[in-house]
Design a protein around this nucleic acid. Structure first.
Lengths: 159, 159
DNA sequence: GACTCACTACTCGGATACCTTCTGTCCGAGTTACTAAGG
DNA sequence: CCTTAGTAACTCGGACAGAAGGTATCCGAGTAGTGAGTC
């Protein structure tokens, strides 16, 4: 199982955007994080499609959050970039082979699928429980409160 | 995020093997589940490498569980087939770009990685909490107790 | 009749192609701020 | 001095190649049962 690498970028971008007071261009976010500008643009488009960020065109355009960082969960970002398909997909093996179960007995998912999907639900619940604002607070604690002010200063500084 | 399709096959195989009293050849398991024999063999090799099943060669050889089904969790099977690498891999973005954090301040994982790995831990805990024996009992409940006896009969029947 | 040996058929195991998905990139469409000219 | 039209630069957005991992397959190595032959 592998989570798309773009998820990490998207989370960092949301965290950075939560400290901005004006739209930030994708290229500037890429410079800040030291990643490929063009590929990061792709991830930001996914975030925009999911309604997490709003894009503004034109000379002073860029990306900005559509709502407060406390209203955006990690799950929102993960689903926006990685997709909403479950990691485990039941192919209904129980209905195949010589001992195939009749279709009438398969109204509910099979026991294996139920257990796997329950575990995924626990994962999603843990992600939904953490917001971008929580992340910002954790980073503040890790850096003795120096990271966010520096970030705000860099974002507002004219290139 | 996508879980390897072989995980589902591996789980069904472990469930079937829990009802067998003698080694079952890979080809017979493939026939039972209606899947590709050669590819299933690959998954079974992974289970053997992880020590979940034991392989016996020769004319009446095949695969069998190394321990009771109550001592094998879903997590064991998932890790054996899908690997032990975490789905989220932190690339230390915080150490890159113009606002890179000094390496001395990065003794513990960054806040994003901590949250993501905590969610994965919840997922793993949910998987570790369910055993193959639990699955067998659930299937019994779903089928009014008819599935497992039929499975045992089919497995012991000489081809 | 019992033992030994060679054989055969069956098993697993790792090395080998194919294909879907993720990764990374490019150029075009659209919008905004700015500038300069005219009233 | 104000208005207005034009321009230019900057932005995003979707369409286009390359690479990696998962999927599927094949053939060779090894082992246990089986049968014939021999003592």
């Amino acid at each position: 199982m592998k989570l798309s690498g773009g998820v990490e970028w998207g989370l960092h971008c949301c965290l950075s955007l939560s400290q901005a007071s004006a739209p930030v261009p994708a290229a500037r976010l890429a410079e800040l994080h030291g990643v490929s500008p063009t590929y990061l643009a792709k991830q930001l488009q996914a975030l925009a499609r999911a309604g997490l960020v709003r894009s503004t065109q034109g000379k002073v355009g860029g990306y900005e959050l559509t709502r407060g960082p406390e209203a955006i969960s990690l799950l929102d970002v993960v689903r926006a970039i990685d997709g909403e398909a479950p990691a485990f997909r039941c192919t209904e093996i129980r209905q195949r082979g010589p001992l195939a179960a009749p279709q009438s007995a398969c109204v509910r998912p099979c026991a294996i699928a139920r257990a796997m999907l329950a575990a995924e639900e626990a994962w999603r619940a843990a992600l939904a429980d953490v917001s971008i604002a929580d992340l910002a607070q954790d980073v503040q604690g890790d850096t003795d409160g120096t990271a966010m002010p520096r970030l705000q200063a860099w974002l507002t500084a004219t290139r």
